[in-house]
Write a protein that binds this DNA or RNA. Structure first.
Lengths: 217, 217
DNA sequence: TGGTCGCTCCCCCTATTGTGGTATTTCTTA
DNA sequence: TAAGAAATACCACAATAGGGGGAGCGACCA
């Protein structure tokens, strides 16, 4: 079985040591280091080469958010699992922007801690239901900038636009979509009519400004 | 103990019935209805008054995404838990935008189904780790406001780009800027070289995605 | 005072797009 | 079963954009 290497950054001595023993006491896990702050994080991570980092959000010196930012900029492959006692919305937002891979509460049970670490290691993003809800709310708030008008674009037409905003020519789109050049042109004509534009730049501009497509960017 | 009322929209008969019996067989839960599509969702929900809706994403007729949108617009207080076999990125995004409160995979165990329903009912947003990761990635992708590269565009070049994103042709730009058509072309050539693109759509796309022209935002 | 930069303008030729058609197939639905 | 929507494909001609040049003029700067 693989061994998952975990580093801990947590200012509360009691919790830090508990986590240390929990991780080292679980088969398949080893704790490469447990630190009260992340002021020397770069050095420590270089030395320890952890796979996963457990990061407290409230810490003296560099706080957890700054810590994640620093760590992800130097070690993008490391997964950082944030832990907090709060549900604070701004912190969640900042942590996500900083590159955290998961977000759990300190009230989490030991077994769940281990599951969460394993999950992060395997490319998941564990988070409690209530935190996930906040993330979704942030997302929904951020997206619905304006009630986007419905131009009744068909799925194929949206696909064409997707390629268009990638800067592809009709010829390239035809190849990418596996249809003929002339069909691409037909779709574009229909799109122009629906969007009330008459050039590809206008279409791309409209699509990007009005966020007509899901995240293709 | 409270009773959580659950409605099911799922086209697969076998799964639909399994879920029906699972929910009705669990103390504290009752299934108010199990339907193969959500074409009559509004009527059925009005009649059944469920607290939580289990919604399949792939369905004939109105699909799950459209279903959520419809349901949340009429019954904003109802929590919708999406279930899918896929990890499709666009679907996840669309479901979130449509107002889904959670997103689980069909491979979920019965016990986890029940936990997820309870979680949604209590204001959480259960989702599997891998789906949560996708949500975070979408979020992070959407944010990156900063880190904008400096392409060393001259003021005149920026002006050209402004007209470009308005969908103007070279000819129209020439007129608007009071310079000749050929000069516009020269500027565009220089812009393309600086942005490393080779078409107007690519340039517009790059400008809007990287928010190179702050004036618009 | 020569060099670089930004802005201006022009030519030639090719490639790509825009516009107007027509037409077949498949699938859904009234 | 007929109507409609969606996707497919083709043709012809005009318009626009892209790539390669060259070149003049004023400003600024070492």
């Amino acid at each position: 079985m693989e061994n998952i290497r975990v580093a801990i950054f947590e200012d509360n001595k009691h919790l830090r040591e508990s986590l240390y023993y929990l991780i080292n006491g679980t088969p398949g896990f080893s704790c490469t280091g447990a630190y009260p702050d992340c002021n020397d994080a770069v050095f420590q991570i270089t030395k320890d080469t952890p796979d996963v980092i457990l990061m407290d959000i409230e810490m003296p010196g560099l706080n957890g958010i700054q810590g994640v930012k620093l760590i992800k900029s130097k070690f993008p492959q490391v997964h950082v699992l944030m832990q907090t006692i709060f549900h604070d919305e701004n912190n969640i937002f900042d942590a996500i922007c900083a590159g955290a891979s998961g977000y759990i509460l300190k009230s989490t049970t030991p077994a769940e801690y281990i599951t969460a670490i394993k999950d992060v290691y395997n490319g998941g993003s564990p988070m409690t239901g209530s935190i996930a809800r906040k993330v979704l709310e942030l997302f929904q708030k951020n997206i619905q900038v304006e009630a986007k008008q419905d131009y009744q674009l068909t799925p194929k037409e949206k696909e064409m636009l997707q390629f268009m905003v990638q800067g592809k020519s009709f010829k390239m789109i035809a190849e990418a979509a596996g249809i003929s050049y002339e069909t691409v042109r037909t779709h574009m004509k229909n799109i122009y009519a629906k969007l009330h534009v008459n050039s590809n730049t206008e279409a791309v501009s409209k699509v990007l400004k009005e966020k007509l497509l899901s995240i293709f960017f």
